[in-house]
Design a protein around this nucleic acid. Sequence first.
DNA 1: CCGCTTTATTAAACCGGTTGAGGAGGCGGG
DNA 2: CCCGCCTCCTCAACCGGTTTAATAAAGCGG
Lengths: 345, 345
Amino acid sequence: MAQGRVTIVDVASRAGVSKSAVSFALNGRPGLAEETRQRILDVAREMGWSPSQRGRSLAVSRAFAVGLILARAPELIGSDPFYPSFIAGAEAVLSKSGYSLLLQVLDDPAREADAYHRLATEGRVDGVFLSDMRHGDPRIAMLTELGLPAVTLNRSNISSPFPAVCLDDNAPGITVATRHLIELGHRRIAHVTGPVEFMHAVRRRDAWGAALADAGVPEGPVVVSDFTASGGAAATRELLSLEEPPTAIVYANDLMAMAGMVVAQDLGFPVPQRLSVTGFDDTELAAYVSPALTTVRTSPFAWGQHAAQTLLQFIDAGSAPDVELDSPELVIRTSTARPLEPPLT
Amino acid sequence: MAQGRVTIVDVASRAGVSKSAVSFALNGRPGLAEETRQRILDVAREMGWSPSQRGRSLAVSRAFAVGLILARAPELIGSDPFYPSFIAGAEAVLSKSGYSLLLQVLDDPAREADAYHRLATEGRVDGVFLSDMRHGDPRIAMLTELGLPAVTLNRSNISSPFPAVCLDDNAPGITVATRHLIELGHRRIAHVTGPVEFMHAVRRRDAWGAALADAGVPEGPVVVSDFTASGGAAATRELLSLEEPPTAIVYANDLMAMAGMVVAQDLGFPVPQRLSVTGFDDTELAAYVSPALTTVRTSPFAWGQHAAQTLLQFIDAGSAPDVELDSPELVIRTSTARPLEPPLT
DNA sequence: CCGCTTTATTAAACCGGTTGAGGAGGCGGG
DNA sequence: CCCGCCTCCTCAACCGGTTTAATAAAGCGG
């Protein structure tokens, strides 16, 4: 059974009307007697018919799908809890609107341009999410050229015709984390950042620097890392081998912070007694390591929801306002404390 | 510019041939002069044309996409590194074949049936991955009924018309972890498992039990948990409050194990001196916690690759053999050691 | 009872490809 | 010289919907 799929003409003939009538009924268009509409819908339900997305897509020139392209090394994707939650949030609003999410994962960032190009020319999607914004991000020009709608997750540093949905774009999360350390009395505060090609990495770095400058605290050392546990461990080892090791480290994500804490304790820097540590993300595990990690709680789920909402609106209406999500909050746990020796003021 | 997309007829007229000719050239069908074929392809490339997936899909009654439906709570998805890696692996082979991955995330497992139904009747996908197999999994009957091809990730306990791609299906990973603990001299070995509706949870439990029975070691206590850090912490607290606490715990994933280690140390059970711990997954962080976690290394990426390969073959040919991936390997680190007091034999 | 408007419905074109049947031209064999 | 066949290519139908324009029927004022 279920050999030949049931199509609109099957429904039409069963209901004794033309296929146009079925289409009208389905899409709630005016010009059909209420009774007829009802009968058609009843027959459709009874026959278990849903309109073929293929036919529909072709007719209305829409894919009813949006794309997300991840151009990160697979192992990095796995450890970062951001995407799954973001996707869950986006999916929640997409599926409600009959849209699907097309996910593409690239190991080789060089093939990224090609991937967007194909998504666009093949007409597989009506729009895309642009994540991990970079400096002078080339994807913006490319998508403009292709005529493919997009939404950027936070802003790039170049002007863009696409709406931006921002969460912690100016890194107030890092600002408040840094301030927290300053208030505790720290004066040698280091920073472990992500790859500098990412906007969010430099924004966080800048926010950290500005918070220090505001308080008249000299800028501590910075190590550029890569968001992985091994990178965080290496960066920490580097910082703690300095002649004057920092008394606190602001990490750009939880994973590096958690790995860093272990390294610190191994090197004879108990946390938080001799080293305070802050993370970023508030992954579930952060509350269950020892000491529990003080970190910045972001809400990727909400971010996904708003990004999807904005993207759909932009696709529909041709324009959509930027969205600024609530600043993330600092979750203070036990990985931060006053420094052992008070600073010489 | 880019107003009207370039279509097959544009290419045809530009190349001075019919659209059939263009189609033939594109799909490498015989019956075209080599020179003509080349000219057509040149024109197509020059005009930047890729065939519209919409038209193609409709004509050949194929979606050129496969689906993955995740019916887990969003926060659980985020912390589990399995899916991102699995998806990356699947994507690697899918995109090579011109297929896309449709990802759907459901908060409410009750809506799962509906989701599969729509995917099938709307014709959005040509097949799906079935993950997190459950006892007497109802999805198998549903998909059979819908005529939607599928591949199951490990087997269900009911017969299935779909090929299964198995990794650690009989949980040899847990077996070897348990044996490792037995060899170290442990005699009170507990187990923290995932929700029992999942096949893999009970398979792991059974493997643990069998390994103990094989060695003539009495079965230790079992706590059913939920794969989360908080669940792992709670389970550990429960186990260590027993009158006779275990000297070792086999956890069903790393996240629970890592949270469990912290709880243990807090309760005065230093790891590995008074408690040995094994995890499952070998997440990146596992090597960077203290003590470093002894765990079972699975390869979700390879699993994704094989699953996609098998699914495509099954869609194409109507049948595909089951695949049995290599058993995962035990990575011995420092969270396991001989028990303090030798057991009274 | 006619012509005009309004309402309910349908026929047919269209979206952009694929595909089976068929036609034009060249060539070899009878 | 004609026929048949092969090669190369085109025509037109088709996939399953949407949408525009046209038609049939009904309402209505005069």
